[in-house]
C-alpha cells in the first residue's frame, strides 16, 4: 500500500506545530504516514504516525530543497514511492514543495485548507483572490502530488494510535550549490507589542505614511500600543518589530483593535488568540470579519477622527 511522506520542519532543533496539519490530512485521506526529519529525538511522535524516518543530515542541511530532492530519491528506493508528499505551508514548505514538484514532474497544490471526497473524487481546497474565494482542485492523473498544508485547519482524527517504527534514511551526498550559513535574529526594539493589553493595529487601509500619526494619537489616547500588518511594515511606515503575523509577532492582547486590515491568514495566525478582536474595514466582505468578535463597516480614517474627537472631549 502506498503512503504519504510528510517532510517535517524543525527550527533550532524544535519540532514545529505546523507539521501536525499535513499529518492529520494524511490520516483524513486515509494513507499511512511516514515522517521525514533531520537528526534529532522524536519520541513525541510515537503513536501518531506509521514511520519516523530520520535523515543523517543536520537541520541546516535538511532545510534545503536541493538536498531534500536527493534524500527523496534515496528514500523512494528504500521505502517505495509515496502517493503524496506533504509539507507544512511555511517558509520551509514553500521553499521545498515547488522545487520537488518540478524535479519529480508531479502536480503541486499549496496552502491546502480543506479536503473532501465525493462523486467528483478527491477534492483539495485552497483559497484564491485575497482569501475571498475557495478553489476546489482535483488531480487530473490520480493521487500523486506534492502539497503544503495550512497550519491549524485539520483536526486530529479521533483515537488514531499507531505502532510507530523508527527508521534511518539512507545517506546522501549533499548538493554543493546551496548552503545554509546561519540564523539571524531580529533586532530588539523599544516597544514589545506582545506585552500590550490593547493593540491598535493598522493595515493596508492606512494608505500612506502621513496618516500614521493619526493612529498613533488614537492609540495614545486609548492607552494602547500601535501595531500593524505586513504591508505597513513592508513600506517601513512602522518598524518591523510592530508587525503582527507569522513573519512578525504572535500577540494575545485583551483587545486587538484592527483598522483597515483585510485579514490574510498569515495575519490572522498572529492575533487569533486575542481575548476580543474588533475589526474596522470599509469592505464588508473583508475576511477579517470572519474572525473578529465585533465588526464595524466604516472607513478607518473617518472612524479614527471621530473617535479622537470624542476622547479629547472626555479629557
Amino acid at each position: 500500500m502506498s503512503y504519504s511522506l510528510i517532510i517535517a520542519e524543525t527550527r533550532k532543533g524544535e519540532f514545529q506545530e505546523g507539521n501536525f496539519d499535513p499529518l492529520y490530512l494524511s490520516d483524513i485521506v486515509g494513507l499511512p504516514s511516514y515522517i521525514l526529519l533531520p537528526e534529532g529525538e522524536y519520541g513525541i511522535l510515537r503513536g501518531s504516525c506509521d514511520k519516523v524516518i530520520v535523515a543523517p543530515l543536520k537541520e541546516g542541511e535538511f532545510l534545503n530543497p536541493l538536498n531534500i530532492i536527493r534524500l527523496l530519491e534515496r528514500t523512494f528506493q528504500a521505502f517505495g514511492e509515496p502517493s503524496a508528499i506533504l509539507l507544512p505551508h511555511c517558509s520551509f514548505g514553500i521553499d521545498v514543495a515547488p522545487y520537488v514538484a518540478g524535479r519529480l514532474g508531479w502536480p503541486i497544490i499549496t496552502d491546502i485548507s480543506g479536503f473532501c471526497r465525493g462523486e467528483e473524487g478527491e477534492i483539495f481546497i485552497k483559497t484564491l483572490y485575497s482569501e475571498k474565494i475557495n478553489g476546489h482542485f482535483r488531480l487530473k492523473e490520480g493521487m500523486r502530488f506534492v502539497g503544503t498544508v495550512r497550519k491549524g485547519v485539520f483536526p486530529k482524527v479521533a483515537e488514531v494510535v499507531k505502532e510507530t517504527l523508527f527508521e534511518e534514511a539512507p545517506s546522501i551526498e549533499k548538493d554543493p550549490r546551496r548552503d545554509f550559513i546561519e540564523y539571524i535574529e531580529e533586532e530588539i526594539e523599544d516597544v514589545d507589542i506582545t506585552k500590550a493589553d490593547l493593540l491598535v493595529s493598522v493595515g493596508r487601509g492606512v494608505k500612506e505614511k502621513g496618516n500614521i500619526p493619526l493612529f498613533e494619537e488614537l492609540a495614545a489616547l486609548l492607552g494602547g500600543v500601535l501595531s500593524c500588518s505586513r504591508p505597513v511594515a513592508d513600506r517601513a511606515w512602522l518598524p518591523k518589530a510592530r508587525q503582527v503575523g507569522t513573519s512578525g509577532k504572535t500577540v494575545r492582547p485583551k483587545v486587538y483593535f484592527a483598522l483597515g486590515i483585510s485579514g490574510a491568514f498569515q495575519h490572522i495566525a498572529g492575533m487569533k488568540d486575542s481575548d476580543v478582536i474588533i475589526a474596522v474595514n470599509k469592505d464588508p466582505s473583508a475576511p477579517i470579519f470572519q474572525y473578529a468578535h465585533y465588526g464595524v463597516v466604516e472607513d478607518m480614517h473617518r472612524l479614527a477622527q471621530k473617535m479622537i474627537e470624542n476622547l479629547r472631549d472626555q479629557k
Partner: peptide, 23 residues
C-alpha cells in the same frame, strides 16, 4: 495575489535543475 500558489519559480527551478531559494 490571484491564485496564491507561490510555486511557479520553484517548479521552474526544479524543471531546470538549478538552485532555488524562496521568500
Amino acid at each position: 495575489e490571484d491564485d496564491e500558489f507561490a510555486s511557479t519559480g520553484g517548479v521552474l527551478a526544479g524543471l531546470l535543475e538549478v538552485p532555488y531559494a524562496s521568500m
